[in-house]
Nucleic acid binder design. Structure first.
Length: 359
DNA sequence: CAATCGTGGCG
DNA sequence: TCGCCAAGATT
């Protein structure tokens, strides 16, 4: 019955109405969001703020994004201002948020929109998809939320909600096409932007990964996995590989006037474009190759940090930086020019270990 | 397609 | 302590 409904192109189940009514009453108040009431009164979201928030929210929690969004929009209120910003300033403001390719693409995109599109974001999914750092999800989200186009957003929330609503037992990522088709079948022609945000709000607050609040879900009477008792275990996922542990050494050198030896990492690869301490490669047994000859002191303790696909244990070594030193790596940054907040978290941990012991 | 790419919170 | 997870994109 239910499969034949879907395969025959039967009218989508009337989910959108329930979800929009729930959203009207329970929408989260988010800094980048136009409330459903304001939206109904004709207020349009600013595409720049929608784009910026969506990029920040890629694989990142709302709680983590809030402060970054405030700082970015305070410093750079529109896409032209962001396009005019310096690379180091933007990377420094992004520090700590992770996935730094997003920040590099953010700048590329801002400069493209400003330079080639007269500062206006495209309003179609296909045109948005051509922008740096904008993939299928973000293109659909901007088109739907900023321009109220009937696009179907597919993120982790929507995958989970659809898998549960239709009790889809196929594990991810195999199930993605089916989940996408299900989601598309529910997307309404009216208020598609509010609808997209409603599904994601539901996934974030009610239909959560662990212990979903099915009892207060606006879709509880239509949810097939709730009826079957399978909701908490959905969506199924293929098991992940274990993370190996790598080791590395970083070198912190300070001059008498407080200047520090730092290094701008290359744009490609891990922490690309970010500031960091000169250091070894990260592997099984890193070689001790300090940036200049000195009597290096190994700090007690170590830095432990987990990246997406490996654990890292860093040894921190320090030495005074002579006025006449000619380091083989990095560049000297004056005390005033250095902000610890410009460092990615793993590098800030090394800095904190050093400060905790020496200063 | 599978691998790469951060970080913080939570059970 | 540790694995899981978050409004994914890119190659």
């Amino acid at each position: 019955m239910r499969d034949s409904d879907f395969e025959s192109g039967f009218d989508p189940e009337p989910i959108a109405g329930d979800l929009l009514a729930w959203y009207d009453a329970h929408a989260r108040d988010l800094p980048w969001r136009v409330s459903p009431a304001a939206r109904a009164a004709g207020v349009r979201p600013d595409p720049y703020r929608v784009w910026l928030s969506e990029v920040m929210l890629q694989q990142t929690t709302v709680a983590a994004v809030r402060d970054y969004f405030h700082r970015f929009t305070m410093l750079w209120p529109d896409v032209g201002a962001l396009a005019a910003a310096g690379d180091g300033a933007v990377m420094g403001e992004w520090a700590g948020l992770g996935y730094y390719a997003r920040a590099r693409n953010l700048l590329k995109c801002a400069r493209f929109v400003t330079g080639e599109l007269n500062g206006r974001f495209p309003d179609s999914h296909d045109a948005l998809l051509r922008l740096p750092g904008v993939g299928p999800y973000t293109a659909a989200a901007i088109a739907a939320i900023a321009f109220d186009r009937p696009e179907t957003v597919m993120d982790g929330n929507v995958e989970r909600v659809m898998a549960r609503l239709h009790d889809i037992e196929t594990p991810l990522p195999t199930a993605k096409p089916e989940l996408k088709a299900r989601a598309a079948g529910h997307t309404p022609a009216e208020r598609p932007g509010d609808y997209a945000q409603a599904v994601m709000d539901l996934g974030a607050t009610i239909c959560t990964p662990k212990s979903p609040a099915c009892g207060i879900c606006p879709l509880r009477d239509r949810c097939r996995s709730r009826a079957a008792g399978t909701a908490p275990g959905l969506p199924k996922k293929t098991p992940k590989k274990p993370k190996p542990t790598r080791r590395g050494i970083v070198y912190l050198a300070r001059r008498g006037d407080g200047a520090l030896l730092l290094e701008r990492r290359p744009d490609k690869g891990l922490l690309g474009g970010m500031l960091g301490w000169p250091g070894s490669d990260w592997g099984e047994a890193p070689q001790d190759r300090p940036p200049f000859e000195a009597d290096w002191t190994t700090l007690p303790g170590e830095v432990r940090h987990t990246f997406t696909h490996f654990h890292l244990i860093l040894t921190v070594k320090t030495a005074p930086l002579p006025d006449a030193a000619a380091p083989t790596a990095g560049e000297v940054l004056s005390r005033d020019a250095f902000r610890p907040s410009d460092l990615p978290t793993v590098m800030r941990k090394a800095y904190d270990l050093w400060r905790g012991g020496a200063a």
